[in-house]
Design a protein around this nucleic acid. Sequence first.
DNA 1: TATACCCCTTACGTCAACGTAAAGGCAAGC
DNA 2: GCTTGCCTTTACGTTGACGTAAGGGGTATA
Lengths: 186, 186
Amino acid sequence: MPIEYSRPERYNEARYHDLRPADPRRTDLRRPERSFTIRQLCVEFSVTPRALRFYEDKGLLFPARDGMNRVYSTRDRARLQLILRGKRVGFSLSEIREILDLYDEKDGGAVQAARSLKKFRERIEALKQQREDIDGAIQNLEEGCVRLERQLTESRPDLLPRAEAYDSVLRARLDGPADAALALSK
Amino acid sequence: MPIEYSRPERYNEARYHDLRPADPRRTDLRRPERSFTIRQLCVEFSVTPRALRFYEDKGLLFPARDGMNRVYSTRDRARLQLILRGKRVGFSLSEIREILDLYDEKDGGAVQAARSLKKFRERIEALKQQREDIDGAIQNLEEGCVRLERQLTESRPDLLPRAEAYDSVLRARLDGPADAALALSK
DNA sequence: TATACCCCTTACGTCAACGTAAAGGCAAGC
DNA sequence: GCTTGCCTTTACGTTGACGTAAGGGGTATA
């Protein structure tokens, strides 16, 4: 076993360091005029600067600038939150962009509003359908769990109770390395 | 305006034709030994043959063969359904493969079963989290709807009632082409 | 027997959503 | 003043999930 252990870090941009606020104004959290650096948002939401710049490129964000540097407002932050959730529910960036645009169309005329309304409702329908899918998938998996639990109750009830701790139980019971499990595979 | 109108078809594989069952055995639907051609499944689930072959390549499906031709069983069909729903809820093909493999591990030993159980539970948790996201997104969009509806109620209540039919209403009211809406955009 | 559909394989192309590298600028701290 | 760390831009690379084309074969119908 070598003495130096390898670093799990993958790339530069993703290495986030401690961020002490340099400006006391930025320290007080509940000011709506608060602003953020790109890195602050990246740390907060676990994304890379590259991603934020990419979203900007695609027209989903438009932070202000301080010289060359990007300055994100609380509004930008809110948009980012929506973007990330949009992604989690399966929207593509262009779909998200469209939705954000619809939101932003502050008074683009009544006709636009009606159009937006229609699209929103379509999205809602799609999401409800997706929720059905998720419920179905959960149900399937839970059936699988029940089956596995039954199987285990008969063969190895000791492996059953706490799924997270089963590794240690296993080691104690098998009196050997956990790798032994591999020998059991069909 | 040219006389010949362009064909909207994009590519060969996606053009599905009528599929009369050639073999009367295949006609009677509720036999569990029923089998399907690739095209039948493609039509039923609106996917391309390429996709099915791709899933096979990736180890998610393994249909039987009749000479060179693929023959899908009802079990293959069921797997396909799971695959497609897995995709809809945001799983990658390799994740889906893993889940299917766990399902298939018919008695790969108690230790494997315990491991599968753990993974299933993790998946379930992730899905429940995702459902939260979806509910949140729905709520946001519904708030947007309410806002838009309020806005429309004040300015153009005539555009309100039936979102699907608003186009015709629009045309009638504006006494001109629907394109006029474009002129309103900020 | 030619045409129309169906099937197959191999293989290169594509698109989204970034990753990663290269090259350089500004500010703080030693 | 040099290094460190953050920021910038431009630009090429990558991965997943197929699309699409090319080339060839089986069967049934006109």
